[in-house]
């Protein structure tokens, strides 16, 4: 999503978000992420208005004090930016890819099922299976911090069964243009 992203050409405008919409964003973030209201309050104080940065291809980035925190594609789920995820690593469920896949992930590729199901990979166990279309933190084998944020294209159980093709679609990853963007 952010492999090529230039603030000068890809941003259509900044607008402050209406407080009623902020409330609904806050509610859906709380329901979508595993985050306590207090922590969210610390990241994004109620008093500070959210700024909606509209970008091409229906991407919206929400910033607080110019720092991008949340982004969204069309009406999809809210994703935290990778920097936010590094600070609060538990807010999204975790999947892990094996070492061989890191190289491709850092080049912006989507994550294929075999990389997630192999010995170095990790998928949530069957009793915590994720359905398709849930945002996940992509971790890497032998690494401490997340390397990307993505969305599952298949349910985790399905990934185990099919073991072929795209399992997790990468939304943002370490070193892409959103990562390089400190402030907006």
């Amino acid at each position: 999503m952010f492999k090529k992203f230039q603030p000068s050409t890809d941003i259509a405008g900044h607008t402050p978000v209406k407080s009623s919409i902020q409330r609904s964003i806050r509610a859906s973030v709380l329901s979508q992420w595993k985050i306590e209201p207090e922590t969210l309050e610390a990241i994004w104080p109620k008093k500070e208005g959210l700024i909606h940065v509209k970008c091409r291809e229906h991407i919206s980035i929400y910033t607080v004090h110019g720092e991008p925190l949340i982004f969204q594609h069309f009406d999809g789920p809210f994703y935290p930016t990778l920097k936010l995820l590094h600070k609060y690593p538990y807010i999204l469920p975790k999947v892990q890819v094996d070492r061989g896949a890191i190289r491709f992930l850092l080049a912006g590729a989507h994550m294929m099922c075999p990389g997630l199901t192999s010995a170095g990979g990790y998928l949530p166990p069957a009793d915590a299976a994720l359905p398709a279309g849930s945002p996940v933190a992509i971790h890497a084998e032998g690494k401490e911090h997340a390397v990307g944020v993505g969305i599952t294209k298949l349910g985790t159980e399905e990934m185990r069964k099919v073991n072929k093709g795209v399992g997790v679609e990468t939304a943002t990853y370490l070193g892409d243009d959103l990562w390089a963007l400190q402030t907006l």
Binding site: E36, P37, E38, T39, E41, A42, I43, H86, K87, Y88, P89, I102, R103, L106, K143, E144, H145, V147, L174, G175, W179, A180
Partner: peptide
């Protein structure tokens, strides 16, 4: 009263901006 969870402070490489464990891919 519930306290906000403090953020994990992450060290970033000053050269390539990645966390240092990912420098090898930079």
């Amino acid at each position: 009263p519930p306290e906000p969870v403090p953020p994990v402070s992450v060290l970033y490489c000053a050269v390539c901006s990645y966390p240092p464990e990912y420098c090898e891919f930079g």
